[in-house]
């Protein structure tokens, strides 16, 4: 009996100290983590929106001016992009889908004709080398040189994302043509982009 008590106390102490350390680090890093996430989002928005974009409505605080506000429809955040003259030229929709290792966050750029410009995955925890085939973009490089530098506004290729979405109309897609070895991850991207397209459709109707 005494032994059990001793075991419980020592395991409890380890857990308590661990929980305390986690709470402390969580508290301290909360601000910087949010800032880092925001920086990632800003970089991502630049990638999926057209080059002519001058301002992006990305303010999600209460009481922000109407033309700076993020539009939220069914949990999907729509970031509107305006050109220098103040006309709306594109929308970037941020949506997420459930993947193999957690949520897969995507950004879908949609131009004013309702066609998808690019789809990028901003954060995920899929298995490197397998699931990442459906999410990550990587440049083609050769030790023999000859690789051409990316033009401005051009993204490193991902055959799955580019082939399925680039230039297509922003309506929910039906067929899931996944990447072999990355079924869960491609389904996650598919679901997230479909959510984005549905939200975009509702936004256009209003």
């Amino acid at each position: 009996m005494k032994d059990i008590l001793r075991l419980c106390v020592s395991l409890g102490l380890v857990c308590l100290v661990g929980a305390g350390a986690l709470a402390y680090v969580n508290n301290v890093t909360d601000g910087p983590r949010k800032a880092a996430a925001k920086a990632t989002l800003t970089d991502g928005l630049k990638l999926v929106l057209p080059l002519e974009t001058a301002t992006i409505a990305s303010n999600d605080e209460e009481g922000a001016p109407e033309n700076e506000k993020v539009v939220v429809i069914d949990g999907v955040k729509l970031y509107r992009a305006f050109d220098a003259a103040g006309a709306e030229i594109a929308v970037a929709a941020e949506a997420e889908g459930k993947g193999f290792g957690g949520m897969v966050k995507t950004l879908t750029g949609i131009d004013k004709d309702g066609r998808i410009i690019h789809v990028i995955v901003t954060s995920h925890s899929e298995t490197p080398g397998l699931g990442t085939q459906a999410t990550d973009r990587k440049e083609k490089k050769s030790i023999w040189g000859g690789g051409k530098a990316l033009a401005e506004g051009e993204l490193p290729p991902n055959p799955y994302l580019d082939g399925k979405y680039n230039g297509k109309e922003a309506r929910p897609f039906t067929a899931i043509d996944g990447v072999s070895g990355a079924t869960y991850s491609s389904t996650a991207v598919h679901n997230a982009v479909n959510k984005a397209c549905r939200a975009y459709g509702k936004y256009k109707k209003n």
């Binding site: 661990g18 350390a21 986690l22 680090v25 969580n26 890093t29 910087p32 983590r33 880092a36 996430a37």
Partner: peptide, 16 residues
């Protein structure tokens, strides 16, 4: 518990 705490702390620090 120790390992999980350690990994989670590393993850949070890296994110931040």
């Amino acid at each position: 518990v120790i390992i999980a705490v350690f990994v989670t702390i590393v993850e949070m620090l890296m994110n931040a």
